[in-house]
């Protein structure tokens, strides 16, 4: 609490003059940067389109309602595909992420010099790149279809699951591990008796949480050709069939709400 002596006696201020100056400079820099970014970003914006947006929105809205309920029949199969992409992709991702997490955790890594940085890079690379981009790439490599979607979901899940899991491994109680080691257990036994019981709740919680996120993501992977509901969405958008688009969005929304409910229930049961 800086108190400065002045001619009129001591004056109390919240911050020192220096700290205040720095704070104002900081805020000023943020504002200036934002304004500058805004100008650069909107350099090529055609404001006539922006001004026209409300009438466009009204137009789309008018066409999108009511949704075409009969279209729902054609959505069951894509919905099944979407759920499969999410589930199989999550399983594949978790299967790869688990060894990566053990390589990345300080207390279980086989080598802090090589394996750990490599595992950490895999985790960062996977986390930085959205599943849609992975899908874009995989569709280009493997051709369109569910397989590209499953692998895209798996690749994105590795980073998420790997990061949370390796943090859980680093938080395990070292004395429990030591006790198992002292019985003469082998490395594999140490994993199953020492580490696994301690990380199991985190493992299941993380997996289900990621599955929930993956349901959302797999619903739109079809936009780039990786199968599921998104494929239908893309087709409807291409022909500007807005009532079908609305119907698809309703199905996606329903699925997301359902998967969130399932994941909350399962996580509740584990913890």
């Amino acid at each position: 609490m800086p108190v400065t002596e002045t001619a009129r006696g001591p004056v109390w201020q919240l911050r020192t003059p220096r700290a205040r100056l720095l704070m104002w400079l900081g805020w000023f820099a943020v504002v200036a940067l934002t304004v500058w970014c805004w100008q650069v970003m909107t350099k090529d914006t055609i404001w006539a389109f922006v001004a026209d947006a409300p009438s466009q929105a009204a137009d789309i809205g008018a066409r999108a309602f009511p949704p075409r309920w009969s279209y729902a029949e054609k959505l069951w199969l894509p919905l099944w595909d979407t759920i499969n992409i999410a589930t199989l992709g999550t399983m594949l991702g978790v299967a790869i992420a688990t060894p990566v997490a053990f390589m990345a955790a300080r207390n279980t890594t086989p080598s802090a010099m090589f394996a750990r940085p490599a595992a950490l890079f895999i985790i960062v690379a996977s986390r930085s790149i959205n599943s849609l981009i992975w899908a874009l790439l995989l569709v280009s490599i493997l051709g369109p279809g569910l397989l590209a979607g499953i692998i895209a979901i798996a690749l994105r899940s590795i980073g998420f699951v790997g990061k949370l899991l390796y943090e859980a491994i680093e938080e395990t109680d070292a004395t429990q591990i030591e006790a198992i080691e002292a019985t003469g257990a082998s490395g594999a036994q140490l994993l199953t008796y020492g580490y696994w019981p301690q990380i199991a709740p985190a493992f299941w919680g993380i997996s289900v949480f990621r599955w929930d996120i993956n349901i959302r993501e797999s619903a739109v992977l079809g936009l780039v050709g990786a199968g599921g509901l998104g494929l239908q969405l893309q087709a409807s958008l291409n022909v500007l069939a807005w009532p079908q688009v609305t119907m698809i969005l309703i199905v996606i929304l329903g699925t997301v709400v359902f998967s969130e409910w399932v994941s909350a229930r399962v996580r509740h049961a584990i913890i």
Binding site: A179, T183, G184
Partner: peptide, 18 residues
């Protein structure tokens, strides 16, 4: 050799969830 040496710990060091 370790399996011939039993060890007992301060904080019990049981695997709590087993």
């Amino acid at each position: 050799a370790r399996r011939r040496i039993g060890m007992i710990f301060q904080e019990y060091a049981l695997v709590e969830r087993l």
